[in-house]
Nucleic acid binder design. Structure first.
Lengths: 211, 211
DNA sequence: CAAATTCTGCACTGTATGGTTTACTTCGGA
DNA sequence: TCCGAAGTAAACCATACAGTGCAGAATTTG
Protein backbone atom coordinates (compact mmCIF):
# COMPACT_ATOMS: atom_id res chain seq x y z
CA UNK A 1 0.00 0.00 0.00
CA UNK A 2 2.97 2.24 0.12
CA UNK A 3 3.78 2.62 -3.55
CA UNK A 4 1.34 4.75 -5.49
CA UNK A 5 1.08 3.93 -9.16
CA UNK A 6 -0.19 7.03 -10.92
CA UNK A 7 0.67 5.40 -14.25
CA UNK A 8 -0.13 1.87 -15.33
CA UNK A 9 2.27 2.31 -18.24
CA UNK A 10 3.93 -0.70 -19.67
CA UNK A 11 3.96 -4.42 -19.13
CA UNK A 12 3.94 -5.32 -15.44
CA UNK A 13 6.34 -8.17 -16.08
CA UNK A 14 8.94 -5.73 -17.36
CA UNK A 15 8.26 -3.44 -14.49
CA UNK A 16 9.00 -6.16 -11.99
CA UNK A 17 12.19 -7.09 -13.78
CA UNK A 18 13.25 -3.47 -13.56
CA UNK A 19 12.53 -3.01 -9.88
CA UNK A 20 14.20 -6.30 -9.08
CA UNK A 21 17.32 -5.31 -10.97
CA UNK A 22 17.24 -1.79 -9.57
CA UNK A 23 17.14 -3.10 -6.03
CA UNK A 24 20.16 -5.23 -6.72
CA UNK A 25 22.21 -2.54 -8.42
CA UNK A 26 21.20 0.28 -6.08
CA UNK A 27 22.06 -1.99 -3.18
CA UNK A 28 25.40 -2.94 -4.59
CA UNK A 29 26.48 0.48 -5.83
CA UNK A 30 24.54 3.07 -3.88
CA UNK A 31 22.29 5.63 -5.47
CA UNK A 32 24.68 7.88 -7.32
CA UNK A 33 27.07 5.38 -8.79
CA UNK A 34 24.32 3.01 -9.86
CA UNK A 35 23.84 3.82 -13.52
CA UNK A 36 20.54 3.44 -15.29
CA UNK A 37 22.42 1.60 -18.02
CA UNK A 38 23.62 -0.95 -15.51
CA UNK A 39 20.12 -1.43 -14.19
CA UNK A 40 18.80 -1.88 -17.70
CA UNK A 41 21.47 -4.47 -18.44
CA UNK A 42 20.80 -6.32 -15.19
CA UNK A 43 17.09 -6.34 -15.96
CA UNK A 44 17.65 -7.50 -19.53
CA UNK A 45 15.66 -4.54 -20.69
CA UNK A 46 16.18 -1.51 -22.86
CA UNK A 47 17.08 1.66 -21.05
CA UNK A 48 14.29 3.35 -22.92
CA UNK A 49 11.85 0.96 -21.28
CA UNK A 50 12.93 2.08 -17.85
CA UNK A 51 12.08 5.64 -18.73
CA UNK A 52 8.82 4.31 -20.06
CA UNK A 53 7.92 3.03 -16.61
CA UNK A 54 9.53 5.59 -14.35
CA UNK A 55 9.79 9.33 -14.66
CA UNK A 56 13.46 9.45 -13.72
CA UNK A 57 16.16 7.76 -11.70
CA UNK A 58 15.02 9.30 -8.46
CA UNK A 59 11.45 8.09 -8.77
CA UNK A 60 12.76 4.64 -9.61
CA UNK A 61 14.89 4.61 -6.49
CA UNK A 62 12.07 5.70 -4.24
CA UNK A 63 9.59 3.26 -5.71
CA UNK A 64 12.05 0.44 -5.24
CA UNK A 65 12.75 1.53 -1.69
CA UNK A 66 9.07 1.59 -0.77
CA UNK A 67 8.40 -1.70 -2.46
CA UNK A 68 11.25 -3.38 -0.63
CA UNK A 69 10.10 -1.92 2.66
CA UNK A 70 6.70 -3.50 2.22
CA UNK A 71 8.20 -6.86 1.40
CA UNK A 72 10.66 -6.98 4.26
CA UNK A 73 8.13 -5.63 6.70
CA UNK A 74 5.85 -8.51 5.84
CA UNK A 75 8.65 -11.01 6.38
CA UNK A 76 9.49 -9.51 9.75
CA UNK A 77 5.86 -9.50 10.78
CA UNK A 78 5.88 -13.23 10.19
CA UNK A 79 8.94 -13.67 12.36
CA UNK A 80 7.34 -11.68 15.14
CA UNK A 81 4.17 -13.72 15.04
CA UNK A 82 5.94 -17.04 14.75
CA UNK A 83 8.11 -16.60 17.82
CA UNK A 84 5.95 -14.51 20.06
CA UNK A 85 2.56 -16.03 19.54
CA UNK A 86 2.88 -18.32 22.48
CA UNK A 87 5.58 -18.02 25.07
CA UNK A 88 7.06 -21.01 26.84
CA UNK A 89 10.42 -19.73 28.05
CA UNK A 90 10.39 -15.95 27.81
CA UNK A 91 14.14 -15.40 27.70
CA UNK A 92 14.77 -18.15 25.20
CA UNK A 93 11.84 -17.11 23.04
CA UNK A 94 13.02 -13.52 22.92
CA UNK A 95 16.53 -14.65 22.04
CA UNK A 96 15.29 -16.92 19.29
CA UNK A 97 13.06 -14.18 17.99
CA UNK A 98 15.87 -11.64 17.92
CA UNK A 99 18.27 -14.04 16.24
CA UNK A 100 15.76 -14.71 13.50
CA UNK A 101 15.13 -11.02 13.18
CA UNK A 102 18.85 -10.40 12.78
CA UNK A 103 19.06 -13.18 10.23
CA UNK A 104 16.43 -11.39 8.17
CA UNK A 105 18.98 -8.68 7.50
CA UNK A 106 21.29 -11.09 5.77
CA UNK A 107 18.33 -12.77 4.08
CA UNK A 108 17.54 -9.53 2.23
CA UNK A 109 20.98 -8.18 1.50
CA UNK A 110 19.86 -6.07 -1.44
CA UNK A 111 17.18 -4.40 0.59
CA UNK A 112 19.39 -3.54 3.52
CA UNK A 113 22.16 -2.30 1.31
CA UNK A 114 19.49 0.01 -0.01
CA UNK A 115 18.62 1.01 3.54
CA UNK A 116 22.19 2.15 3.98
CA UNK A 117 21.91 4.19 0.81
CA UNK A 118 18.74 5.82 2.07
CA UNK A 119 20.28 6.71 5.38
CA UNK A 120 23.21 8.23 3.60
CA UNK A 121 20.97 10.33 1.36
CA UNK A 122 18.53 11.16 4.16
CA UNK A 123 19.44 14.82 4.10
CA UNK A 124 18.68 15.01 0.38
CA UNK A 125 15.45 13.01 0.37
CA UNK A 126 12.30 15.14 0.58
CA UNK A 127 10.86 15.02 4.08
CA UNK A 128 7.47 13.52 3.21
CA UNK A 129 9.03 10.82 1.08
CA UNK A 130 11.47 9.88 3.81
CA UNK A 131 8.62 9.76 6.27
CA UNK A 132 6.62 7.52 3.96
CA UNK A 133 9.53 5.12 3.84
CA UNK A 134 10.07 5.10 7.59
CA UNK A 135 6.38 4.48 8.12
CA UNK A 136 6.29 1.64 5.62
CA UNK A 137 9.48 0.06 6.96
CA UNK A 138 11.12 0.39 10.36
CA UNK A 139 8.10 1.99 12.00
CA UNK A 140 5.74 -0.80 11.07
CA UNK A 141 8.06 -3.36 12.60
CA UNK A 142 7.75 -1.65 15.95
CA UNK A 143 4.02 -1.33 15.77
CA UNK A 144 3.92 -5.03 15.16
CA UNK A 145 6.12 -5.96 18.07
CA UNK A 146 4.53 -3.73 20.67
CA UNK A 147 1.16 -5.52 21.07
CA UNK A 148 2.92 -8.82 21.61
CA UNK A 149 4.91 -7.35 24.45
CA UNK A 150 1.73 -5.83 25.79
CA UNK A 151 0.08 -9.22 25.77
CA UNK A 152 3.02 -10.85 27.48
CA UNK A 153 2.89 -8.13 30.12
CA UNK A 154 -0.82 -8.66 30.64
CA UNK A 155 -0.05 -12.29 31.27
CA UNK A 156 2.11 -11.14 34.16
CA UNK A 157 5.51 -11.97 32.63
CA UNK A 158 6.67 -8.41 32.10
CA UNK A 159 6.06 -5.03 33.66
CA UNK A 160 5.55 -2.59 30.84
CA UNK A 161 4.22 0.92 30.95
CA UNK A 162 4.63 1.99 27.34
CA UNK A 163 4.63 -1.04 25.06
CA UNK A 164 6.00 0.83 22.05
CA UNK A 165 8.86 2.10 24.08
CA UNK A 166 9.62 -1.37 25.36
CA UNK A 167 9.57 -2.62 21.79
CA UNK A 168 11.98 0.12 20.80
CA UNK A 169 14.32 -0.76 23.64
CA UNK A 170 14.31 -4.45 22.88
CA UNK A 171 15.07 -3.70 19.26
CA UNK A 172 17.88 -1.34 20.15
CA UNK A 173 19.52 -3.77 22.55
CA UNK A 174 19.55 -6.60 20.05
CA UNK A 175 19.03 -5.92 16.36
CA UNK A 176 20.30 -2.38 16.29
CA UNK A 177 23.41 -3.37 18.17
CA UNK A 178 24.22 -6.08 15.66
CA UNK A 179 23.30 -3.93 12.68
CA UNK A 180 25.55 -1.19 13.88
CA UNK A 181 28.52 -3.48 14.20
CA UNK A 182 27.96 -5.16 10.87
CA UNK A 183 26.92 -2.02 9.01
CA UNK A 184 23.65 -3.70 8.16
CA UNK A 185 25.35 -6.86 7.03
CA UNK A 186 28.09 -5.26 4.96
CA UNK A 187 30.77 -6.55 7.31
CA UNK A 188 30.56 -10.14 8.47
CA UNK A 189 30.31 -11.01 12.14
CA UNK A 190 30.83 -14.45 13.63
CA UNK A 191 27.56 -16.16 14.56
CA UNK A 192 28.89 -16.77 18.04
CA UNK A 193 29.45 -13.04 18.42
CA UNK A 194 25.97 -12.27 17.14
CA UNK A 195 24.58 -14.75 19.59
CA UNK A 196 26.51 -13.18 22.42
CA UNK A 197 25.26 -9.69 21.61
CA UNK A 198 21.67 -10.77 21.26
CA UNK A 199 21.73 -12.80 24.46
CA UNK A 200 23.24 -9.95 26.41
CA UNK A 201 20.68 -7.56 24.95
CA UNK A 202 17.74 -9.74 25.87
CA UNK A 203 19.09 -10.24 29.37
CA UNK A 204 19.42 -6.53 29.91
CA UNK A 205 15.95 -6.02 28.51
CA UNK A 206 14.56 -8.56 30.91
CA UNK A 207 16.39 -7.13 33.91
CA UNK A 208 14.73 -3.84 33.09
CA UNK A 209 11.26 -5.07 32.23
CA UNK A 210 10.76 -8.31 34.12
CA UNK A 211 8.47 -8.11 37.10
CA UNK B 1 47.47 9.49 15.79
CA UNK B 2 45.15 7.87 13.36
CA UNK B 3 46.19 9.57 10.16
CA UNK B 4 49.51 8.49 8.78
CA UNK B 5 51.27 11.13 6.73
CA UNK B 6 53.60 9.37 4.35
CA UNK B 7 54.13 12.70 2.63
CA UNK B 8 54.80 16.02 4.30
CA UNK B 9 54.18 17.69 0.94
CA UNK B 10 53.02 21.22 0.85
CA UNK B 11 52.16 23.96 3.27
CA UNK B 12 50.30 22.65 6.28
CA UNK B 13 48.08 25.71 6.24
CA UNK B 14 46.79 24.79 2.80
CA UNK B 15 46.41 21.23 3.85
CA UNK B 16 44.16 22.21 6.72
CA UNK B 17 42.10 24.45 4.46
CA UNK B 18 41.62 21.49 2.15
CA UNK B 19 40.61 19.00 4.81
CA UNK B 20 38.28 21.53 6.38
CA UNK B 21 36.60 22.20 3.05
CA UNK B 22 36.54 18.54 2.15
CA UNK B 23 34.79 17.66 5.39
CA UNK B 24 32.16 20.28 4.67
CA UNK B 25 31.57 19.27 1.06
CA UNK B 26 31.77 15.52 1.63
CA UNK B 27 29.34 15.96 4.51
CA UNK B 28 26.94 18.00 2.47
CA UNK B 29 27.08 15.98 -0.74
CA UNK B 30 28.25 12.51 0.16
CA UNK B 31 31.33 10.93 -1.32
CA UNK B 32 30.39 10.40 -4.94
CA UNK B 33 28.66 13.63 -5.75
CA UNK B 34 31.20 15.75 -3.95
CA UNK B 35 33.46 17.00 -6.73
CA UNK B 36 37.10 17.81 -6.23
CA UNK B 37 36.43 21.09 -8.00
CA UNK B 38 33.84 22.01 -5.40
CA UNK B 39 36.24 21.15 -2.60
CA UNK B 40 38.94 23.24 -4.21
CA UNK B 41 36.57 26.18 -4.55
CA UNK B 42 35.38 25.84 -0.97
CA UNK B 43 38.96 25.72 0.24
CA UNK B 44 39.94 28.71 -1.88
CA UNK B 45 42.67 26.61 -3.36
CA UNK B 46 43.73 25.37 -6.76
CA UNK B 47 42.59 21.92 -7.67
CA UNK B 48 46.17 21.06 -8.48
CA UNK B 49 47.12 21.81 -4.90
CA UNK B 50 44.72 19.19 -3.67
CA UNK B 51 46.40 16.60 -5.84
CA UNK B 52 49.66 17.89 -4.53
CA UNK B 53 48.66 16.98 -0.98
CA UNK B 54 46.56 13.88 -1.58
CA UNK B 55 47.03 11.01 -3.97
CA UNK B 56 43.42 10.93 -5.08
CA UNK B 57 39.87 11.65 -4.02
CA UNK B 58 39.59 8.44 -2.06
CA UNK B 59 42.66 9.07 0.05
CA UNK B 60 41.41 12.57 0.72
CA UNK B 61 38.09 11.22 1.92
CA UNK B 62 39.66 8.67 4.21
CA UNK B 63 42.15 11.11 5.66
CA UNK B 64 39.38 13.57 6.37
CA UNK B 65 37.28 10.84 7.95
CA UNK B 66 40.06 9.74 10.26
CA UNK B 67 40.98 13.30 11.16
CA UNK B 68 37.40 14.12 12.04
CA UNK B 69 37.07 10.98 14.09
CA UNK B 70 40.01 12.03 16.23
CA UNK B 71 38.59 15.47 16.77
CA UNK B 72 35.08 14.39 17.67
CA UNK B 73 36.35 11.59 19.84
CA UNK B 74 38.32 14.10 21.86
CA UNK B 75 35.25 16.30 22.26
CA UNK B 76 33.18 13.37 23.42
CA UNK B 77 35.87 12.27 25.85
CA UNK B 78 35.57 15.71 27.43
CA UNK B 79 31.82 15.35 27.75
CA UNK B 80 32.21 11.97 29.39
CA UNK B 81 34.73 13.26 31.89
CA UNK B 82 32.83 16.44 32.64
CA UNK B 83 29.57 14.73 33.56
CA UNK B 84 30.73 11.48 35.03
CA UNK B 85 33.72 12.55 37.07
CA UNK B 86 31.73 12.92 40.20
CA UNK B 87 28.21 11.68 40.61
CA UNK B 88 25.65 13.42 42.78
CA UNK B 89 22.35 12.19 41.35
CA UNK B 90 23.05 9.18 39.18
CA UNK B 91 19.89 9.32 37.06
CA UNK B 92 20.10 13.05 36.47
CA UNK B 93 23.81 12.91 35.77
CA UNK B 94 23.37 10.15 33.21
CA UNK B 95 20.55 12.07 31.55
CA UNK B 96 22.58 15.27 31.40
CA UNK B 97 25.52 13.35 30.06
CA UNK B 98 23.47 11.70 27.35
CA UNK B 99 21.81 14.93 26.33
CA UNK B 100 25.18 16.59 25.94
CA UNK B 101 26.43 13.60 24.01
CA UNK B 102 23.46 13.85 21.68
CA UNK B 103 24.03 17.55 21.29
CA UNK B 104 27.56 16.78 20.10
CA UNK B 105 26.04 15.27 17.00
CA UNK B 106 24.46 18.54 15.99
CA UNK B 107 27.56 20.40 17.09
CA UNK B 108 29.61 18.59 14.43
CA UNK B 109 27.14 18.36 11.57
CA UNK B 110 29.82 18.03 8.91
CA UNK B 111 31.46 15.16 10.69
CA UNK B 112 28.30 13.19 11.25
CA UNK B 113 27.10 13.76 7.74
CA UNK B 114 30.38 12.15 6.84
CA UNK B 115 29.65 9.29 9.19
CA UNK B 116 26.50 8.64 7.22
CA UNK B 117 28.53 8.62 4.03
CA UNK B 118 30.95 6.12 5.51
CA UNK B 119 28.20 3.82 6.67
CA UNK B 120 26.69 3.94 3.23
CA UNK B 121 29.99 3.09 1.58
CA UNK B 122 30.94 0.54 4.21
CA UNK B 123 30.70 -2.32 1.76
CA UNK B 124 33.12 -0.58 -0.59
CA UNK B 125 35.66 0.61 1.96
CA UNK B 126 38.62 -1.74 2.44
CA UNK B 127 38.23 -3.74 5.63
CA UNK B 128 41.36 -2.53 7.41
CA UNK B 129 40.60 1.09 6.64
CA UNK B 130 37.08 0.75 7.92
CA UNK B 131 38.39 -0.89 11.05
CA UNK B 132 40.88 1.91 11.57
CA UNK B 133 38.04 4.39 11.41
CA UNK B 134 35.82 2.48 13.80
CA UNK B 135 38.70 2.16 16.23
CA UNK B 136 39.51 5.84 16.06
CA UNK B 137 35.89 6.90 16.33
CA UNK B 138 32.93 5.04 17.79
CA UNK B 139 35.02 2.39 19.50
CA UNK B 140 37.09 4.86 21.44
CA UNK B 141 33.98 6.51 22.81
CA UNK B 142 32.95 3.23 24.38
CA UNK B 143 36.32 2.52 25.82
CA UNK B 144 36.18 5.93 27.44
CA UNK B 145 32.75 5.46 28.95
CA UNK B 146 33.27 1.98 30.33
CA UNK B 147 35.75 2.76 33.12
CA UNK B 148 33.48 5.47 34.47
CA UNK B 149 30.63 3.01 34.76
CA UNK B 150 33.00 0.57 36.37
CA UNK B 151 33.98 3.16 38.94
CA UNK B 152 30.35 4.02 39.64
CA UNK B 153 29.64 0.35 40.08
CA UNK B 154 32.55 -0.04 42.46
CA UNK B 155 31.05 2.75 44.51
CA UNK B 156 27.99 0.56 44.90
CA UNK B 157 25.63 2.56 42.70
CA UNK B 158 25.39 0.05 39.88
CA UNK B 159 25.68 -3.66 39.46
CA UNK B 160 27.80 -4.27 36.40
CA UNK B 161 29.42 -7.44 35.20
CA UNK B 162 30.90 -6.35 31.90
CA UNK B 163 31.51 -2.61 31.92
CA UNK B 164 32.00 -2.35 28.16
CA UNK B 165 28.74 -4.07 27.58
CA UNK B 166 26.98 -1.77 30.01
CA UNK B 167 28.50 1.19 28.17
CA UNK B 168 27.26 -0.20 24.89
CA UNK B 169 23.77 -0.66 26.26
CA UNK B 170 23.60 2.82 27.71
CA UNK B 171 24.73 4.26 24.41
CA UNK B 172 22.21 2.23 22.46
CA UNK B 173 19.31 3.19 24.69
CA UNK B 174 20.04 6.90 24.43
CA UNK B 175 22.30 8.23 21.72
CA UNK B 176 21.74 5.51 19.17
CA UNK B 177 17.99 5.79 19.57
CA UNK B 178 18.07 9.50 18.89
CA UNK B 179 20.58 9.18 16.07
CA UNK B 180 18.46 6.57 14.40
CA UNK B 181 15.37 8.72 14.46
CA UNK B 182 17.15 11.85 13.28
CA UNK B 183 19.38 10.08 10.78
CA UNK B 184 22.39 11.46 12.62
CA UNK B 185 20.97 14.93 12.71
CA UNK B 186 19.79 15.12 9.12
CA UNK B 187 16.17 15.31 10.20
CA UNK B 188 15.27 17.65 13.05
CA UNK B 189 13.65 16.37 16.21
CA UNK B 190 12.00 18.50 18.87
CA UNK B 191 14.19 18.94 21.97
CA UNK B 192 11.31 17.79 24.12
CA UNK B 193 11.19 14.56 22.13
CA UNK B 194 14.93 14.10 22.43
CA UNK B 195 14.66 14.65 26.13
CA UNK B 196 11.87 12.12 26.39
CA UNK B 197 13.85 9.46 24.53
CA UNK B 198 17.00 10.03 26.54
CA UNK B 199 15.17 10.01 29.84
CA UNK B 200 13.36 6.80 28.99
CA UNK B 201 16.62 5.24 27.87
CA UNK B 202 18.44 6.12 31.07
CA UNK B 203 15.56 4.86 33.17
CA UNK B 204 15.56 1.53 31.38
CA UNK B 205 19.32 1.35 31.75
CA UNK B 206 19.04 1.98 35.46
CA UNK B 207 16.26 -0.55 35.94
CA UNK B 208 18.57 -3.10 34.37
CA UNK B 209 21.82 -2.13 36.05
CA UNK B 210 20.91 -0.50 39.34
CA UNK B 211 21.55 -2.59 42.41
C1' DC C 1 -5.35 -10.68 -39.40
C1' DA C 2 -5.04 -5.78 -38.00
C1' DA C 3 -4.46 -2.06 -34.95
C1' DA C 4 -2.56 -0.36 -30.92
C1' DT C 5 0.56 -0.62 -27.48
C1' DT C 6 4.95 -1.60 -25.84
C1' DC C 7 9.75 -2.89 -26.20
C1' DT C 8 14.26 -2.49 -28.44
C1' DG C 9 18.46 -0.81 -30.02
C1' DC C 10 21.18 2.84 -31.00
C1' DA C 11 22.65 7.14 -31.85
C1' DC C 12 22.86 11.65 -29.85
C1' DT C 13 23.01 15.81 -26.60
C1' DG C 14 24.61 18.09 -22.91
C1' DT C 15 26.81 18.08 -18.90
C1' DA C 16 29.92 16.66 -15.26
C1' DT C 17 33.92 14.60 -13.36
C1' DG C 18 38.64 12.83 -12.00
C1' DG C 19 42.87 13.63 -13.05
C1' DT C 20 46.93 15.72 -15.82
C1' DT C 21 49.69 19.11 -18.04
C1' DT C 22 51.63 23.49 -18.78
C1' DA C 23 53.14 27.97 -18.12
C1' DC C 24 53.32 31.34 -14.80
C1' DT C 25 53.40 33.48 -10.08
C1' DT C 26 54.18 33.64 -5.05
C1' DC C 27 56.77 33.20 -1.03
C1' DG C 28 60.03 31.93 2.49
C1' DG C 29 64.64 31.00 3.94
C1' DA C 30 69.63 31.38 3.13
C1' DT D 1 68.59 39.31 -3.32
C1' DC D 2 68.16 34.98 -5.26
C1' DC D 3 66.46 30.23 -5.68
C1' DG D 4 63.65 26.46 -5.24
C1' DA D 5 59.58 24.62 -3.38
C1' DA D 6 54.78 25.32 -3.49
C1' DG D 7 50.64 27.36 -5.33
C1' DT D 8 47.62 29.16 -9.27
C1' DA D 9 44.77 29.33 -13.31
C1' DA D 10 43.38 27.48 -17.29
C1' DA D 11 43.02 24.46 -20.79
C1' DC D 12 42.70 19.73 -21.73
C1' DC D 13 41.56 14.47 -21.93
C1' DA D 14 39.02 10.52 -21.48
C1' DT D 15 35.22 8.78 -19.50
C1' DA D 16 30.72 8.41 -17.82
C1' DC D 17 26.09 9.36 -17.20
C1' DA D 18 20.99 11.02 -17.39
C1' DG D 19 17.81 11.53 -20.44
C1' DT D 20 15.70 11.94 -25.46
C1' DG D 21 14.37 10.80 -30.24
C1' DC D 22 13.28 7.65 -33.56
C1' DA D 23 12.43 3.83 -36.60
C1' DG D 24 11.36 -0.68 -36.55
C1' DA D 25 10.39 -5.26 -34.27
C1' DA D 26 7.54 -7.75 -31.05
C1' DT D 27 3.54 -8.54 -28.54
C1' DT D 28 -0.83 -7.99 -26.98
C1' DT D 29 -5.75 -7.49 -27.91
C1' DG D 30 -9.84 -7.55 -30.44
Amino acid sequence: MAAGQPESHGRPEKRRAITRAARKVFGREGYTRASVDAIAAEAGVSKRTIYNHFADKERLFLDVALEGADEVTAAIAQIVDRHLHKIVDLEQDLIDFSLDRVAAVTAFPDHFALVRAIEAEAARIPGPVLKAWVDAGPQTAHLRLAPHLRRIADRGLLEIGDAEQAAAHLTLLTITDVNQQTFYGAVPLAPSEISRIVTAGVQTFLRAYRI
